[in-house]
């Protein structure tokens, strides 16, 4: 009976990353990214997708692997689910399997494979 609850999930419109990103949501060194959520305002306890736009050195679309996760730093716990990420176009990724099970201050975490090792990025998200 929960089928309808997630029926609104759909594949977002995809495009190659437009690098550099004008106002990145997270950046570290040569790497930057932004993301959008589908639905834009997730419901607590319901799954949602994330579309990521990532750029790397020389303002080129980042094309390496990305690991994504989310946690609540104040609560010191993460999600009960492990999202998966697929690359759709150069610098564009779709992550599926996010589910935030509590309202409050969450943090989306990203790990990119930088030339000199892992690059960790994060961005806060307030789940109403």
């Amino acid at each position: 009976m929960i089928t309808g609850a997630v029926a609104l999930l759909s594949t977002p419109t995809l495009a190659a990353a437009n690098c550099p990103i004008d106002a990145p949501m997270a950046a570290a060194g040569d790497y930057q990214l932004s993301y959008t959520l589908t639905p834009a305002l997730p419901t607590v306890g319901q799954p949602f997708q994330m579309t990521i736009e990532a750029c790397g050195p020389a303002n080129a679309p980042y094309t390496g692997p990305i690991l994504v996760d989310a946690d609540m730093p104040a609560h010191r716990h993460g999600m009960n689910y492990k999202p998966t990420v697929i690359s759709t176009l150069p610098g564009t990724y779709v992550a599926e399997g996010f589910l935030l099970h509590m309202p409050g201050d969450w943090r989306f975490k990203f790990r990119l494979a930088g030339a000199d090792g892992p690059v960790r990025l994060a961005h806060g998200h307030v789940q109403p």
């Binding site: 089928t3 997630v6 029926a7 999930l9 799954p47 009960n80 689910y81 492990k82 998966t84 589910l99």
Partner: peptide, 23 residues
């Protein structure tokens, strides 16, 4: 019996549930 099978949106949490120590 879901026509969408394993790709049904309703199956997304089933696909992604993680076996973690905190469970």
């Amino acid at each position: 019996d879901d026509p969408a099978g394993k790709d049904s949106p309703a199956a997304i949490p089933s696909h992604h549930v993680a076996l973690q120590g905190r469970a």
